[in-house]
């Protein structure tokens, strides 16, 4: 991280992405838009208000965090796995002066950058639909997106490192991603959960991302900012370091 050796790796991924930037961005938007429109209007029509705000407003922060998580996860699972295992791009890079750490830092920051883009796209939608209370506060969402992206990119690299094939990722989605979507406060306030489940949800990184993003969209400054930020960073760094060690065992043995 101290040097910039990772930059060519980041740049390589960026140049590939640039070739397909438009479809990629539209893809980033389509899924969350469907969630917001379908659930926002569908459920919102029945619920009217959640925690004192229209359901669509409530849902926006959850959708934002969920999209950032998805983008970071897909990039570090499927795309990174292709580069590592199928195309052997990482092996080609390792024959140059770059090290595995450089490669993985580059991948980590790239996935976080890509998820930042998809988060920014959602913010654009939020602005367009007016799903915010205080415009200035929505700008504070950017660092939240960055933290969330780093968190799930790091975790994704850990999973990538131990995956024998693409099918393995399904376990991660079923056991880790889906529970976070359903329990992390994306669709409803965590207070709706029975206490034991709410405690469990507190351990999920997505919960902390939502806890930062939602107040900002509803015009309030979030509580325990440092705690939430630290949890996201801790998950991200732990995932990255585990991923680095396991990828080393996998490729450099």
């Amino acid at each position: 991280m101290i040097n910039l050796n990772w930059f060519p790796v980041w740049q390589r991924n960026f140049l590939v992405w640039k070739k397909l930037a438009m479809p990629s961005l539209l893809g980033n938007l389509a899924d969350p838009m469907l969630y917001m429109l379908g659930l926002g209007y569908g459920l919102g029509g029945l619920l009217h208000q959640v925690n004192g705000v229209p359901y669509l407003h409530f849902l926006a922060a959850g959708t934002l965090c969920y999209s950032v998580m998805n983008s970071a996860t897909f990039e570090t699972l499927y795309s990174a796995f292709s580069r590592m295992h199928v195309q052997k791009t990482w092996e080609a890079i390792l024959n140059t002066p770059l090290t595995l750490r450089d490669v993985l830092v580059g991948e980590w920051l790239w996935a976080a950058s890509k998820s930042l883009l998809s988060g920014l796209a959602i913010i654009l939608v939020i602005w367009t639909l007016g799903l915010y209370t205080n415009f200035a506060m929505t700008l504070a969402l950017v660092p939240v997106i960055v933290l969330t992206g780093l968190c799930f990119s790091g975790l994704g690299l850990a999973v990538n490192a131990v995956s024998p094939n693409y099918d393995f990722f399904l376990y991660y989605f079923t056991l880790c991603i889906t529970p976070q979507v359903l329990l992390g406060g994306v669709f409803y306030p965590p207070t709706a959960l029975p206490p034991w489940l709410a405690v469990a949800a507190d351990w999920l990184p997505l919960t902390h991302a939502v806890n930062l993003a939602r107040p900002l969209l509803l015009g309030r400054w979030p509580e325990a900012v440092a705690l939430h930020a630290l949890v996201l960073l801790a998950y991200g760094f732990a995932g990255f370091l585990f991923g680095l060690r396991q990828t080393g065992r996998r490729l450099l043995r």
Partner: peptide
């Protein structure tokens, strides 16, 4: 290397250019 690991996302020229970056 024993197995070709050229970058399939790039052209011939880009492959050389990107590899030079490393």
């Amino acid at each position: 290397p024993q197995m070709d690991n050229l970058d399939p996302d790039f052209t011939v020229r880009e492959n050389l250019q990107i590899y030079g970056r490393y």
